[in-house]
Design a protein around this nucleic acid. Structure first.
Length: 761
DNA sequence: TACAGTCGGGG
DNA sequence: GTGTACGACTGTA
């Protein structure tokens, strides 16, 4: 029988070997299986390999052993190996674990590759691939071939059956009462109590609708554990899994260090035969939604549930593994070794990072921002930078600018080979996006895809320099930044040669202006020349009607890199580094700052900007009056900060640590990397945690402290006009008084607070 | 004043 | 299934 359909899930099963779920074009869901053997390799002294041979032969798992040789990334000559071909893929993890434990001295390859990646490498499939499959009478796969490619931009989506389940509010704040259920055109609420009817109702729904994907809110951290626990206790089976022969994959929460900070990931619950994605626990789900997750799975090869929860590096590492498998290059075993702290010398030597030129402080008109497109990944592809192509002494190699390193130009590197199709797809998408009309439904999808690609491309660079990366090497990382600095210096030279003033440079972007230049055409020759001189793609991000580069708050003569706000010619705002961008700014303050900037953005003539200042003061006074009169909802006053360590480890307890201590006192444990929400209160301890059982009394709120924060954020907006924080305070408070500001409630009528305009929920 | 703690960045 | 380093800034002792 031949089936056409989309590949939904792949996993190993002891009885059936590899299990593959297909969404048939006929609407049926097919559970197929296939004999799929998996090979791992060991290298080391011949006598030790002989002992390993005997050891593996005597294990219960069926395995075929052979001597062979293969290429390792950093060696041009193949290395001799013992190959262990495990006949049932389900046996591979346990067999490898036994071998590595008994023979820790040997070097292992292809030992810990996710099964789905191996399968995709062999058959050129990918998650959600549209496939033609031939099966026998027992649903055993005889032949499988993909009919599309992950690099297509016009692939047809599979008709996924999606069930959405979410409690009516955040369970960490207060116990929810009911679940909102949504699928196709059905929407209703299920009360959590009585639990028996909830479980019976859900079980019936799962059987009747049989979803491919369960999208939940807090499903990993609260809902599914809650349902599973009660399902066991009351002995009411709940068919969350589609696969009957499998348990549920339940993983604990964890805290780890990455991106220079502590990161917390909640526990996870993954299903078999269908997917579960907790939108609150999925990386960047808020940014790119389900479309982005599906795209992430397609291009990385990771199963849907993994793609939704991936950590930095996992996605790009998976793509590199598929490239290596297809090119018959050994994939090193990823031993988890604790990273030793760097010495001071390491720090000085290793990282010079991106190039930054301090901005010219103040207000500038008709400024163009030009950015290298995906600069670091473009450099890797264009200059062939890969761990194995960069070295100290290479013949026929190209020297890296300003470093004593060379790049091999004979062999195309693993990293550029992996990245090239991704970069091309991104360019292809951008070209299409530019030509699609505004109403076209594909726009949203393409934007989500591009956003997923962006994330992969950004993490890819960092991964090159990561000591524990399978395919990483610090020299290649340094070469990328060296080429980046060189490119930016060339760009600066080109712009200045053509009579432009360079106002600011930041890693991959440059802000320039010239008297009389205000249209895209005026800047095009600069762009063309930069592309010609560097070989790297660069684009005009936009032309600012005006832009303000801010100074240091501590010393107004000192500029601060990447702290600015400005308005493009189309009226849109761009701001970086200011309070509204910070996640620990209370929402009403962030909103007030944005409201003020939006008011400035309405001024057409940049020379008239200062005429808007009285209106900004009015906005500020209204907000202050609302604050004083307790008209601002407490939710808008919440500060959200991340815990960097356990509560006991704090030497001086930060506000977040004190709030976490309050939660701990009532048994709510917060772990490093988790966020804590709180309000500032008067006296000690100065904070009140939002997730305590009772909300804070308005009377204890520290209005003075919020006033200071509000004035500080406002003064950022006033800074380019020469109004500092002190003068602003005098202007707004001392002269006008804020107990009864003019025009506020003087006529006895109530007025809607400003911040409700764009802030609901 | 020193230093401990938090954040941004790319979009 | 863990990119790194740094600078700005705030709050506390």
């Amino acid at each position: 029988m031949e089936i056409l359909g989309w590949l939904l899930d792949i996993y190993a099963n002891r009885e059936d070997g590899l299990v593959l779920w297909l969404i048939g074009e006929d609407g049926k869901r097919y559970r197929l299986h296939q004999a799929f053997s998996v090979t791992f390799y060991a290298a080391g002294p011949a006598p030790r390999l002989r002992v390993l041979w005997q050891f593996l032969r005597d294990q219960p798992q069926p395995v075929l052993l052979a001597r062979t040789e293969r290429r390792e990334l950093f060696h041009s000559q193949p290395i001799p190996l013992l190959a262990a071909r495990v006949l049932n893929a389900a046996d591979q993890p346990s067999l490898f674990k036994a071998a590595s434990k008994a023979f820790p001295d040997l070097t292992y390859y292809d030992a810990d590759i996710p099964l789905a990646l191996r399968y995709h490498a062999v058959y050129h499939t990918f998650p959600l691939a549209y496939c033609r499959v031939r099966v026998d009478a027992k649903n055993q796969i005889q032949h499988i071939e993909p009919l599309n490619s992950p690099w297509d931009i016009d692939s047809v989506y599979p008709p996924l059956r999606i069930l959405t389940i979410s409690p009516e509010h955040d369970p960490s704040h207060a116990p929810p009462q009911s679940l909102k259920i949504h699928y196709e055109h059905n929407e209703y609420e299920l009360p959590l109590k009585p639990t028996r009817s909830l479980l019976i109702g859900l079980a019936a729904l799962l059987r009747r609708y049989d979803p491919d994907l369960i999208l939940s809110a807090w499903g990993d951290t609260w809902l599914l554990p809650y349902l599973l626990e009660h399902s066991r206790a009351l002995n009411i089976p709940l068919p969350l899994n589609r696969e009957a022969k499998h348990g549920i994959d339940q993983r604990p929460d964890r805290t780890y260090f990455a991106y220079g900070q502590v990161i917390y990931r909640g526990g996870q619950i993954r299903l078999f035969g269908r997917g579960h994605i907790d939108v609150c626990n999925a990386v960047l789900f808020g940014d790119y939604g389900l479309d982005g997750v599906l795209e992430m799975a397609r291009v990385t090869g990771l199963p849907l549930q993994g793609a939704a929860r991936l950590s930095p590096g996992t996605g790009i590492s998976s793509m590199q593994m598929i490239t290596a498998l297809q090119d018959q290059i050994l994939v090193p075993w990823h031993k988890q070794q604790a990273e030793r702290p760097k010495t001071a010398l390491d720090l000085i030597q290793s990282d010079r990072g991106g190039l930054v030129y301090q901005p010219l402080i103040g207000l500038h008109k008709n400024v163009a921002e030009i950015d290298f497109i995906s600069m670091y990944p473009s450099i890797m592809v264009h200059f062939n930078i890969s761990p194995e192509t960069v070295g100290e002494h290479l013949p026929n190699a190209q020297p890296v600018p300003a470093l004593n390193l060379f790049v091999d130009q004979q062999n195309y590197g693993l990293v550029p080979r992996t990245l090239e199709p991704l970069l091309n797809k991104r360019i292809n998408l951008k070209t299409h996006l530019a030509s699609l009309p505004r109403w076209d439904p594909r726009r949203k999808r393409y934007k989500a895809w591009a956003s997923a690609h962006k994330w992969l491309l950004v993490t890819c660079f960092g991964y090159l320099g990561y000591k524990n990366a399978r395919f990483g090497r610090i020299e290649s990382h340094e070469s990328v930044t060296a080429y980046g600095r060189e490119a930016l210096l060339i760009a600066k030279e080109v712009a200045e040669d053509m009579g432009f003033t360079v106002l600011h440079m930041y890693v991959d972007g440059m802000w320039i202006k010239k008297e009389g230049a205000s249209h895209a055409d005026d800047f095009q020759p600069v762009l063309d020349t930069i592309i010609e001189r560097t070989g790297l793609p660069i684009a005009l991000d936009g032309i600012y009607r005006w832009i303000a580069f801010l100074s240091s708050r501590l010393d107004k003569r000192v500029p601060v890199a990447n702290r600015y706000f400005g308005v493009f010619q189309d009226g849109s705002l761009k701001m970086r580094g200011i309070e509204t961008r910070r996640k620990d700014t209370p929402p009403f303050i962030a909103q007030t700052q944005r409201t003020m900037l939006e008011r400035l953005a309405k001024v057409q003539d940049a020379n008239q900007l200062s005429q808007a200042l009285p209106e900004l003061v009015h906005i500020l006074r209204q907000c202050l009056a609302d604050l004083r009169a307790y008209r601002i909802p407490i939710k808008q006053m919440l500060v959200s900060q991340k815990l960097s360590r356990t509560i006991e480890e704090y030497r001086t307890p930060s506000p977040a640590a004190r709030a976490a201590a309050q939660l701990q006192a009532i048994g709510k444990i917060t772990k490093p990397g988790q966020r804590v929400r709180f309000v500032y209160t008067r006296g000690k301890p100065g904070v009140y945690a939002w997730d305590l059982p009772t909300p804070p009394e308005p009377a204890i709120l520290d209005i003075e402290r919020y006033t200071t924060l509000l004035l500080r954020a406002s003064s950022t907006v006033f800074q380019p006009f020469g109004v500092d924080e002190e003068s602003l305070r005098d202007w707004v408070i001392a002269n006008a008084g804020y107990a009864a500001p003019p025009g506020i409630l003087s006529d006895g009528k109530s007025r809607a607070p400003l911040w409700t305009a764009s802030l609901s929920v």
